[in-house]
Nucleic acid binder design. Structure first.
Lengths: 131, 131
DNA sequence: CCCATGTAATTAACGCGTTAACTACAACAA
DNA sequence: TTGTTGTAGTTAACGCGTTAATTACATGGG
């Protein structure tokens, strides 16, 4: 319950920024992974962006439709799909990154650097313990 | 991100139990609130169960259809809706509560009582700070 | 009384999480 | 080569979160 609320409280800070550019939270995560990695294959992308395969399929459709990414089959294995960030996608990342930074720093400052590290540490322990 | 994963890791423990009785996580929360409070009006119920009004409407339909709760208009104010837990609902709560207890205790034991309190404390601070 | 404003609940639309079923392709053995 | 098994993605179905629009009722001023 508390986890849910905390997550919601944090995301509420980012939502306006994403909504202003018509990008969902998950689309944003996918774009960021691609932005950092360049070309990634679907399964790994889903994993890194913490999105389930069915969701990724939908997200890919949306992002491809807006020319943010390109989609190609892997040569050598017709099952695999390779996703690559496109110029428009990079542009969006560049446009939003500073804003994101500000929001994040603000949260960190208000919550406290110490506490943030402590919290992340506890969460990781919890996750590892349960998975 | 970590918040999301942690929440997912924890809920994964409860999901099988709920699925076995064909109850969703939110339906379960609503039932528990009603179980503790008896009769509650819709807005307050949504608030206490941490569910948005549109979701509550859907949940009510489902729970009412299965005779777990009853729905009546408030006398004196035709807009308000009063929800009350029904015998079948109480029975479900009684049937699942012990199981729930075991799962919760197990998580607490594995994670550590200290850490759990610490985590909940941090989360609350975070929530309060952002809201 | 009548109308404007406010409030409670519902409905609608869209996207994601989750599970399961299905398609397409690959790998490997007979 | 063919058939079986495995793997990568996709599709489908259902429920919830989120926002906005809408309905039903209440309230207070004219």
């Amino acid at each position: 319950m508390a986890l849910l609320h905390a997550r919601e409280a944090v995301m509420a800070r980012f939502r306006p920024m994403l909504a202003a550019h018509d990008v969902t939270e998950q689309q944003w995560r996918v774009l960021r992974v691609l932005s950092e990695a360049g070309s990634v294959e679907a399964t790994e992308l889903a994993d890194r962006a913490s999105v389930l395969p069915p969701s990724l399929t939908r997200i890919i459709k949306a992002l491809e439709g807006r020319k943010f990414i390109t989609r190609n089959k892997a040569e050598g294995d017709g099952r695999r799909v390779i996703l690559t960030i496109a110029p428009a996608g990079s542009a969006l990342i560049d446009a939003l990154s500073p804003e994101r930074r500000v929001i994040y720093d603000d949260i960190e400052q208000r919550f406290g650097h110490e506490k943030l590290e402590q919290l992340l540490d506890l969460l990781e322990t919890l996750i590892d313990g349960e998975s």
